[in-house]
């Protein structure tokens, strides 16, 4: 029983990590109808930028977080305008643009990884911050970072929810997400909205990178490994639903940890993928997703 509790605590904690990264993925999907396969690399770049800023003496960790958010968001907007503009405007779907976006995402992810290698090298870097004593839950000592991750995820969710439902700009974003052509006709500056959504999602990826960095070393390959788990989280929770992303993350974390605990642990990642596939086959909307977007 003791062991079961330990597994649950561990599963929840890693699930929150997946959920935080999944927030950005879900946002892009709900706003732009596309799945961005280079999101993992954006997360990785955010983490590296965070280290760079923290290394400047006198800058507190929180300042590095904000700084990384801004810079990564800007980088995201640049990438979207320069490369993805043709494809995001066409929207997702089974159109050539839809498949093109997926393929482009793979290409961008590989290219970004190489760019990061050229800038920062292949070595893993620790985060030069220390948060003091961990939190003791049962027999497990959880580093404080997990708490910060949970808090940040909830805060981000609340902020985004307020933004989307209570502000005019948020209304414009939702209009674009609903139907681009109609929004154009209604006078919404659709290209600007698209860039905004993409930039915000990339900023969220940076938040994830900076918060997860202290518990998981920063290294150029960290993005790919996180990406698939985050996709599983977004899918299970329901693509396009922000609370769903967090919930999905927790479900994936719990599921894979418990399976690893009671079955063969060497196949841990396979359990997460099986969950992803099963959910997609049985209930593509996931737990909290509202609309089944048959389009990509």
């Amino acid at each position: 029983m003791d062991l079961l509790l330990d597994f649950i605590i561990v599963g929840l904690s890693i699930g929150i990590v997946y959920g935080l990264v999944a927030l950005g993925i879900s946002l892009i999907f709900s706003g732009l109808d596309i799945v961005h396969f280079a999101h993992g690399e954006v997360y990785m770049i955010g983490a590296f930028l965070g280290i760079a800023i923290v290394s400047i003496s006198g800058v507190p960790y929180f300042g590095a977080l904000v700084g990384a958010m801004i810079v990564t968001g800007a980088v995201g907007v640049v990438i979207e305008r320069v490369f993805y503009r043709r494809l995001t405007r066409g929207g997702g779907g089974y159109t050539v643009a839809g498949m093109g976006m997926i393929i482009c995402g793979f290409g961008m992810s590989v290219a970004l990884q190489n760019v990061a290698y050229l800038i920062w090298g292949a070595a893993p870097h620790p985060y030069p911050v220390s948060f003091g004593m961990p939190i003791f839950l049962g027999n497990i000592a959880l580093p404080k970072s997990y708490l910060y991750i949970l808090v940040s995820a909830l805060v981000l969710m609340a902020v985004l929810h307020t933004f989307l439902t209570r502000t005019k700009l948020g209304l414009a974003v939702r209009a674009v997400a609903y139907n681009k052509d109609t929004s154009y006709l209604m006078g919404v500056n659709v290209p600007a909205m698209i860039s905004l959504i993409f930039g915000v999602a990339c900023a969220m990826a940076a938040v994830a990178g900076v918060l997860i960095g202290p518990i998981n070393y920063v290294q150029i390959e960290m993005g790919y490994l996180m990406l698939l788990k985050a996709f599983a989280a977004a899918v299970v929770g329901g693509f396009g639903s922000l609370p769903g992303a967090l919930l999905g993350g927790v479900v994936v974390g719990l599921f894979e940890t418990l399976c690893a605990g009671y079955l063969i642990a060497s196949y841990k990642d396979i359990y997460a993928f099986l969950l992803l596939i099963t959910v997609l086959m049985v209930r593509p909307t996931g737990l909290l997703g509202i609309i089944v977007k048959v389009k990509a």
Binding site: I102, L228, I277, L280, M281, V294
Partner: peptide, 29 residues
Amino acid sequence: GIPSFRLEGAYLALVTLGLGESVRIFISA
């Protein structure tokens, strides 16, 4: 091929990616 009956686009991409990676991880373990 079976998932392709119900899913398209990015959803199908995720399923096939998951299957491909599962094969590799299974072999390596």
